[in-house]
């Protein structure tokens, strides 16, 4: 595969992860369990949207067809979005959101810790800025996993179920294809198969402290690398793209 195309695909995935999860988190705005929590969760959403903007802008440059961050964010069809499936899952209750967030943050943290050393200077620079924020996200979602897991009986049961429900989407985070291989060879991004055992250990450690049981690795969903989404994704796009599709070619 051509190097440029591989890098473009790679940037889209990173950008889509951040944009779609940021989109989901922003749905909490005004509906969080406490005012302080509303503010905190919006901060995470804003961080992720910031990452998406940098990554999309760079993806546009790499592609060289003059697309800007909004062209990429708003004007693709469903199959062209490459975010991990876990990012698009509905918010559910707060435990569902925390479980999704913790598992993703742990992945994202390991990934960006490696991207800081990318041979691609722009990727390294974006990662260097993002990793500080991601470290904070992980700290927050870890603390909340502990609170809910080791809180009340109700919260324990609820969040345990959340981890069970979301588990089959975790495998998809670590699937690699031709683009990944090209990116790994060029030293741009890490080999995800090496991150996977670390991720498992870290998750296990936190779940144990949270008095939660680590779900068994059963059948895993996959497809994000081919743009094969869950049923939920179309609804995200219908909101996300509504203005751009209804009024094509306008400045906003």
């Amino acid at each position: 595969m051509e190097q440029k195309q591989a890098l473009f695909n790679y940037l889209l995935r990173l950008g889509d992860n951040a944009a779609i999860l940021g989109h989901r988190l922003s749905e909490w705005c005004g509906h969080g369990p406490e005012l302080e929590e509303d503010i905190a969760i919006i901060n995470t959403a804003l961080d992720l949207l910031g990452h998406a903007r940098s990554l999309y802008t760079y993806a546009g440059e790499v592609e060289g067809k003059g697309r800007d961050e909004d062209d990429i964010a708003y004007l693709r069809i469903e199959r062209e979005y490459r975010n991990a499936l876990i990012c698009e899952l509905p918010n559910g209750h707060y435990g569902d959101t925390i479980a999704r967030q913790f598992l993703f943050d742990q992945f994202n943290y390991l990934l960006f810790s490696e991207l800081v050393n990318s041979t691609d200077e722009t990727v390294a620079a974006i990662a260097a800025k993002a990793i500080k924020e991601i470290r904070y996200h992980l700290r927050r979602s870890t603390e909340w996993t502990l609170r809910l897991g080791d809180g009340t009986e109700e919260s324990h049961n609820r969040v345990q179920q959340s981890f069970h429900d979301v588990w089959m989407y975790t495998g998809d985070l670590f699937v690699q294809d031709e683009s990944d291989k090209a990116v790994i060879e060029a030293g741009i991004g890490p080999d995800l198969t090496l991150l996977y055992p670390v991720w498992q250990d870290k998750v296990k450690e936190v779940l144990k402290e949270a008095t939660l049981e680590m779900p068994e690795n059963g059948w895993m969903q996959s497809g994000s690398k081919q743009g094969r989404h869950t049923e939920h994704f179309g609804y995200i796009l219908s909101e996300l793209q509504y203005m751009q599709r209804a009024y094509p070619g306008c400045e906003w």
């Binding site: 949207l49 910031g50 961050e69 708003y74 009024y247």
Partner: peptide
């Protein structure tokens, strides 16, 4: 979720 650009959304 319906903001027409990323700049407007943030």
């Amino acid at each position: 979720t319906r903001a027409p650009s990323l700049r407007r959304k943030v």
